[in-house]
Every structure is written in structure tokens, then in C-alpha cells.
Design a protein around this nucleic acid. Structure first.
Lengths: 224, 224
DNA sequence: CCGCTAACTTGATGCAAATCAAGTTGGTTC
DNA sequence: GAACCAACTTGATTTGCATCAAGTTAGCGG
């Protein structure tokens, strides 16, 4: 079973894709896997960044907390995604924390092993560059949105994107509203109110606490 | 002179550091350099990302603009820094725009050449990974600050960081207040008022339009 | 050195969203 | 299935900041 998870990681993860079978075998040997229950902490800000963590199953929220105590949800990692940047540097501290949202299986590679691997496997470094480049583009968009767009715009954008990513107009919110608020840089109260307003305007329909149906994707995209 | 600039780029840029002389020579051959006057556009969002641009001299502001027309200043590139991520992908569009703040000399490498170079020069890929990793960490901090901190906190943080980076309590703001406002996600009016407030509280002293002296760095860091 | 203009400052007003407060709901545990 | 508790909702109030408006400066070209 454990063996199985390790292979899953290597197979699942985009950065290991298109490596030759030889390399893949090498990688699999270095991988250790580990389980966490929902709510458990996978890594904490301020601790040593000593391993690369790749999600095999489940979801992990990555947050950053300011001195003031307010917390920003930076992203949610799903299967195949990894927490990342910290491992690339010479021994350094993590700047973010990761908490399991569901039961989670992660595959880990120690920083040392991973850096060795990078040197020996140029194709891996290129894959990694692509992955980080995409992340930069996404973060730039997130920063811009946070500074420049209203809460309604950001929420509407989130709904449209989520719906598009899942390929359906009707879906279950992948986050609690509390977490969604932290992601959008607002409060649960405001998320609640804005969703109610969208519903009043006939843009969406809410069912229960976390079911959303998008009725008018076009107008939702135009919300300001 | 042109030859000179090309060498400058290769010598100056962190990502080319620690390459062996052989590689460096190779890189220099691929580099073209180009000049821009203050205010000129180096690249625009929506156009093809066909070249990597490295700043040899001067400063370039990188911005992202929302449909609403409001503009976010993402960063200011100085000598040795580069605009980057876009070049890594298969042909794609730029998501950001770059405008010269001063007279600027940039060195460019075509995307094709650069990608070839990456494949042939593993050390370069590793340097690039480090550089992008740092950028991710910095962007995460910027996103968190934008969502979670007040304008006063962000401005105070900016002053403290800038002062620290320059190594002196007295300095000239490297940006116009208009641009500083765009960077912090606020308006020039608010920047003006907050600085006046800091001065009233004895935290800083302003001289002329852009001279700042930090009087109490500790208390400035505690502003909320 | 004068005049022009963009950058900036200062003041008055309005509004979006945070905060505070008091319920209500739904899921989980025993 | 009753009781509990976190998550959520809805309402009232406050507030930080944007916006609008009217000056004031500083730098630059002539």
C-alpha cells in the first residue's frame, strides 16, 4: 500500500511527467509517504523547510499569518500539487503553514534528495520552472485582484472560475465560507451577504450551506 | 559600446552567476541590447511573450491592469533583475506591462534561444528556479499584506523595508507617490495623508517632496 | 527667470465593508 | 434522537478609505 502511494505521487505529479522511466524509478525510491487527518498541521511557518511535500490524496490549505494575527489563505493544494518554493533554497524557514482540510496522503522528498535530483535531472528542473512560473502569474493576478477589485468582484470571479474548473454550473463549494473569506481577504459575514445579494439578483442559486448553481455566468462576470 | 552592454547583462545578472566561462560566452552571443527613454513601454500585456528582458541600467515598473481600468504596480525592476515568467512557457501572452521609469538599457534574449539555453545549461535552470522561488515568496507576502493589512501598515512596512534595503534612515523615495500608491493598492491622496500623519506622530520627517527620514523605526513597524 | 503643467496636498463627503451583536442551522457525538 | 458546538446568517453601527473638489508646489522648457 505504501509502495502504491509513492508510485501515485510520481505518476500524478505534473513536475514528474515526461521524465524518462529511468528517472521515474529513481524518484520513487526517494519518496516517503505520510498520512494526516483533517485539521492536522503538515508544516508550520517558522520551521525548517526540510522537505518537498506533494499531495497524493485530499486537500491542504496553505496560509500566511501576519503579526496582527489575521490570516490569509494563499491557496488550496489538491492531488498532484505541491508546496514548494521553500525547498529550493539553501536551508531556510517556511513562510507559510499547511493544514489538512480533509484526510490527506502526502509524499515527501527531503530537501537534500530533491536538490540532488534536480541537478541530475535537467528535465525535472524545467518542469519545475514551468510550474513555478504559472504560480507567479497566478499570484500576480491574486495580488492585483486584492488591491484593485471589490469583494463582490473577487467573489464573483471565484465562483465563475470554480465553476469553470469543475466544468459544471452546479457545484459544492470546495471551501467553508470561513476559509473562502480568508482566501478572498474578507469576512464570513460579507461572503454570506454577497452571496445572498447574488441570489436576489438572480445570478446564482444557493442550496443548503454549500451548494451553488450559477444561473447567469455572463452577468456574474460583470459584477462590480 | 553595444558589446559592452551585453557583457554587463551577463555579468550583472544573478541568474548567470556561477556559470562556467564557457557558458557565459555562449549567453553573451545570444543577447541583444536595447535602449528606452523614460516613459516608453518595453512590453505590453496581451502581446506575445517572445523575449526575456534583463535590465542593465535604469528602472522599469511592471504593472497589471484590471478590466475596470485600475492599475496595480507589481514591482520595480532594477539593474540585474528581469521580467521573466512569461518566457518560460510555450508561446503565450504577457499578463503584465513594463514601462521605463528612467532611461533604461535592457538586454534581451529571444524565448527560443533562452529555452534552448536552459536545456543545455542545467546550472542556469537551477539559478532561475531560485530566483523564481524568491519571487513567489515575495508575492505571497505582498498578497497577504494587501488582503490583511491596513494602508498605514503597508505604507509603514514599505518605508521600513526601503530604508533597510538602502541601509540608511534618510533616503529619497525611489517612486513617485502616484506609483507608490499604485504599488500599495491605494490612492495618492491617502499616501499623502498617511505620511503627514506619521510625521505628526514623530515617526518620520519629510523634506521636500520625496525625502524621508525615519525617526522611530520601531514604532513605525508597530503602526496599525 | 517666468510660465506652464504634472504631481502633490488638504478638505469635505459618501460608501463599501469591517465590526459587534444576536440569533439560526446543520452536522457530529454519545 | 437529543444535545452540543462550530459554522453560518442577518441586522445595526462604525470606520477607513475612495472619491470629488479646490488649491499649492516643484520642476522643466523656453
Amino acid at each position: 500500500m505504501h509502495q502504491h502511494e509513492a508510485e501515485d505521487c510520481v505518476r500524478l505529479v505534473p513536475i514528474f511527467q515526461a521524465l524518462d522511466p529511468n528517472d521515474v524509478a529513481q524518484v520513487a525510491k526517494l519518496v516517503r509517504d505520510r498520512q494526516y487527518a483533517a485539521g492536522e498541521t503538515l508544516f508550520a511557518a517558522g520551521t525548517a523547510a526540510d522537505a518537498l511535500m506533494i499531495i497524493a490524496h485530499g486537500q491542504v490549505k496553505v496560509t500566511q499569518t501576519l503579526a496582527s494575527g489575521r490570516e490569509q489563505l494563499l491557496r488550496v493544494l489538491g492531488p498532484g500539487e505541491f508546496d514548494g518554493e521553500a525547498v529550493l533554497f539553501t536551508p531556510s524557514e517556511r513562510t507559510t503553514s499547511g493544514v489538512a482540510l480533509t484526510q490527506v496522503v502526502v509524499c515527501t522528498i527531503s530537501r537534500q534528495d530533491f536538490q540532488q535530483l534536480l541537478k541530475k535531472t535537467p528535465a525535472l528542473a524545467l518542469n519545475m520552472l514551468n510550474s513555478l512560473g504559472e504560480r507567479v502569474v497566478q499570484l500576480e493576478a491574486q495580488t492585483t485582484a486584492a488591491n484593485v477589485a471589490s469583494v463582490s468582484e473577487r467573489l464573483a470571479g471565484y465562483l465563475v472560475e470554480t465553476s469553470a474548473a469543475l466544468g459544471q454550473a452546479h457545484f459544492t463549494l470546495p471551501l467553508q465560507k470561513k476559509d473562502l473569506a480568508a482566501y478572498l481577504g474578507t469576512t464570513p459575514e460579507t461572503v454570506s451577504r454577497k452571496l445572498a445579494a447574488f441570489e436576489r439578483d438572480g445570478l446564482i442559486k444557493q442550496n443548503g450551506r454549500s451548494q451553488i448553481t450559477i444561473l447567469d455566468s455572463d452577468d456574474l462576470s460583470l459584477v462590480e
